[in-house]
Structures are given as structure tokens and as C-alpha cells.
């Protein structure tokens, strides 16, 4: 498998999972009454936002390089970028990107 393609997929997965954990932490933190153990857990989990932010930067750069290589339009890149910010969306976008790449640029999928 192509290294760039694999990097993109792994980063998309990590960003997607972190985003879900972050959303869960926000729900626990703000949705539950102050001081309960689950609410405290939510507050602790808050940390993933920091990790998400930094990995997201790497994800965006890799996604950009990938769209450049595939000669995709800027809106396509925009979709990949936004996918890292809306919980759950990235899994669908990643599958779509993989399918499109296999179809249009098999050379970018295989090594």
C-alpha cells in the first residue's frame, strides 16, 4: 500500500476517534451535574481536544498533499478538512476518498 494513502487513512481514523471521545467528554462535562464521577471523567477527557487539535493539523496537511497528487478540486479538500471537525463524518469521507482514489488513481493506492 502507498505510504501517503496509509498515512491518510490512519490519521483519519485517529482524528475520527478522538473527535468522538472529545464529543463524549463534552456531553459528560456539561450534561451531567457538577461533581458526579462521570462528570469528572468528562472534565478529565477534555484533554483529548488538545491532542485532537495537533493531530488534526497533521491530518489537514496530509489531506492537502493527497488532494494535490490526485489533482482534486479545492472543495474536495475542504470537505476532507471539515470532516475532521464534525463527529462521525470523517469515517464516511475517508471511505469515499479511498473509493475515489482506487477508481481514479490506483497508482496512489498501491505502492
Amino acid at each position: 500500500m502507498n505510504r501517503l494513502f496509509v498515512t491518510y487513512r490512519v490519521l483519519a481514523l485517529v482524528v475520527g476517534v478522538l473527535l468522538l471521545v472529545g464529543t463524549l467528554s463534552a456531553v459528560l462535562k456539561y450534561g451531567l451535574s457538577e461533581g458526579s464521577s462521570l462528570q469528572t471523567l468528562g472534565e478529565r477527557l477534555d484533554l483529548v481536544w488538545l491532542v485532537h487539535g495537533w493531530i488534526y493539523i497533521v491530518y489537514v496537511v496530509v489531506a492537502f498533499v493527497l488532494t494535490q497528487k490526485a489533482r482534486w478540486s479545492l472543495p474536495q479538500f475542504g470537505l476532507m478538512m471539515i470532516a475532521g471537525l464534525i463527529p462521525g463524518l470523517i469515517f464516511w469521507v475517508e471511505a469515499r476518498v479511498a473509493a475515489r482514489l482506487r477508481e481514479q488513481h490506483p497508482e496512489l493506492v498501491r505502492a
Binding site: 484533554l47 488538545l50 487539535g53 495537533w54 493539523i57 489537514v60 496537511v61 492537502f64 479545492l74 479538500f77
Partner: peptide, 20 residues
């Protein structure tokens, strides 16, 4: 420190937008 790192993240995004 967390806020500080967020600040740097935002500025990096700004630079990236400029580059794109």
C-alpha cells in the same frame, strides 16, 4: 499551557490558510 497550545494551533491554521 493548554490555552497556549491552542493559540499556537490557531496561528498555524492561519498560516496554512494563507499558503493554500
Amino acid at each position: 499551557l493548554r490555552n497556549f497550545l491552542y493559540a499556537i494551533e490557531w496561528w498555524l491554521f492561519g498560516l496554512f490558510a494563507l499558503y493554500i
